[in-house]
Design a protein around this nucleic acid. Structure first.
Length: 258
DNA sequence: GGGCGGGCGGGAG
DNA sequence: ACTCCCGCCCGCC
């Protein structure tokens, strides 16, 4: 290596560092914001493609540096504070609905993405069993795999995997621990204890004999059924045999075993 | 009501 | 490629 070729290489490097293409920094760096949410402050990371990573500040760490470092560990990419939150975030937090948000879920498998998409369809104040997700995505026996996929949800709270519970009314596992899951569901006004006591009595679905529609117990329609018209069912098969049809909103699933 | 086997995607060898 | 193992499960003994 002689002096002149060394000179050329330096020129090339200098050009790279002095003249970055427009938007280069924005493509290199992801962005983060801290926003208040009903269940506590959220750190939200996003790229040009959408929201890619969420942690609950109080639960993991209030320290933004810790969040930024965990993002870099996971995605191998730098991140810096954003001047404004991604479009639709404040609305999504107010309504508890993820529609209107764009997520960057690159790196997840098709199966995982379809599981997360199904989870976004669970309204605030309601829950669905893991088996419901499995049924929604056309893989009715992949119930446990659904749990595994939800366990890898990079954007918890915004994609509400906390609204997926065990069919016996137990909250089930959660990235941040089951206590946090129960706390968030409490904030969202879900009465899990009621689901649990119904399930303990063998009731997984509620129907109204005025509409002949059968729902999950937390469905907003089920909650409006007055006591004299309320009928419990162990399985959807039993409900349909009794002349009920599945609710079009909560779409109770015919479970493989029942 | 706890324990057990069925079920299935993903990651590690 | 194939096997083994693990996981936010489910329903039946």
């Amino acid at each position: 290596m002689n002096a002149s070729s060394n000179r050329d290489e330096l020129d090339v490097l200098a050009e790279l560092s002095l003249d970055p293409p427009p938007g280069f920094a924005d493509r290199l760096f992801a962005s983060w914001v801290q926003v208040p949410a009903p269940a506590g402050d959220l750190f939200v990371a996003f790229t040009g493609a959408g929201i890619s990573y969420v942690r609950i500040a109080d639960v993991v760490s209030d320290d933004a540096d810790v969040f930024a470092e965990s993002f870099r560990d996971r995605f191998g990419r730098p991140i810096r504070p954003a001047s404004k939150p991604p479009a639709g975030l404040s609305t999504a937090l107010k309504t508890g609905r993820a529609s209107g948000l764009t997520f960057d879920l690159g790196g997840l498998s098709e199966f995982e993405q379809s599981v997360l998409r199904a989870a976004t369809r669970i309204p605030r104040g309601e829950t669905r069993p893991y088996a419901w997700i499995a049924s929604e995505i056309g893989r009715p026996r992949a119930v446990r795999a659904v749990g595994s996929a939800l366990g890898r949800n990079p954007v918890p709270v915004l994609i509400p995997c906390h609204r997926v519970t065990r069919s016996d009314g137990d909250a089930g596992e959660y990235v941040f621990g089951r206590q946090i899951k129960e706390r968030i569901l409490g904030v969202e006004n879900v009465d899990l204890g009621r689901v649990r006591s119904l399930a303990a009595g063998g009731v997984h679905f509620l129907g109204s004999d005025t509409t002949n529609v059968v729902c999950y117990p937390t469905c907003h329609h089920a909650r409006r059924i007055t006591e004299p018209h309320r009928h419990g069912f162990r399985t959807i098969a039993q409900a349909t045999a009794a002349g009920y049809r599945p609710c079009k909103d909560c779409r109770p699933a015919v479970t493989p075993g029942g």
